[in-house]
Write a protein that binds this DNA or RNA. Structure first.
Length: 225
DNA sequence: GCGACAG
DNA sequence: ATCTTGTCGC
């Protein structure tokens, strides 16, 4: 690790504008037990190539977890990456990729956080509000909150806490591997999100939806070059 | 004031 | 996220 700052100082004016927008959107987030009958489960992810962004959506049939669709959109990125504001950088292109899905999903698993965010509006929550669709976040690293490292045994968990409120679940999806951070995005609740993440993490650390989205992001990337 | 900091 | 080699364990 270098000695200099990992994150360049962001434009304070931009941060102020984006923060205001987040405060507005967070009011629309609904955390509740989903009422859907899950049949179509989607996963999404984005990768970058210089100044361009490639977003992918995969659709799986639940509970078979059989891949039935995979689409992507390749476009320009307007904003830089600023911790806490990831959604503003990736959402525009993700929405364009989502529009290409023939069959719309009942739930979307997003790689990133849901409400486990400084202002409770991670990319999974923001995407959920914009699409008015149930979403949940599965992140590989923590953004905010405190937790105790769960035992490296599949199924073990630990609550991710912000003060006294739980904002996520630190979940070990496979033996002997670091945990993932699961949190509800929108029209979803913590318990269901954690249960689905564990249930769909079949042979790998990441649940199939996000793992496949991640995988195809690399495949399609080679295609656009 | 000093770190931390999704992808 | 991306840049990058070899290497350890299942």
């Amino acid at each position: 690790m270098a000695w200099y700052a990992q994150h360049p100082a962001p434009d304070p004016i931009l941060v102020k504008e984006l923060t205001a927008k987040q405060e507005e959107l967070r009011q629309q987030v609904i955390i509740q037990k989903p009422d859907f009958k899950l049949k179509w489960l989607a996963g999404c992810d984005s990768s970058f190539i210089g100044e361009k962004i490639l977003s992918v959506f995969v659709l799986l049939k639940y509970p078979e977890l059989e891949l039935v669709e995979k689409v992507y959109h390749y476009g320009d990125v307007e904003l830089p990456y600023i911790p806490g504001f990831l959604a503003f950088r990736e959402s525009p292109n993700l929405l364009k990729a989502y529009a290409l899905l023939q069959q719309k999903p009942d739930l979307i698993m997003v790689d990133g956080h849901g409400i486990a965010h400084p202002r409770r509006l991670g990319i999974a929550s923001q995407l959920g509000v914009l699409l008015n669709k149930p979403t949940m976040g599965v992140a590989k690293k923590v953004l905010t909150g405190k937790y105790e490292e769960p035992a490296p045994v599949k199924g073990s968990t630990s609550p991710l806490m912000s003060k006294v409120e739980q904002i996520g679940t630190v979940l070990v999806t496979k033996d002997k591997v670091k945990p993932v951070f699961v949190s509800p995005g929108h029209l979803m609740d913590q318990e269901t999100a954690a249960a689905l993440a564990l249930e769909t993490a079949i042979k790998h650390k990441l649940p199939e939806p996000t793992r496949l989205a991640d995988h195809y992001a690399e495949v399609f990337k080679a295609e656009v070059r």
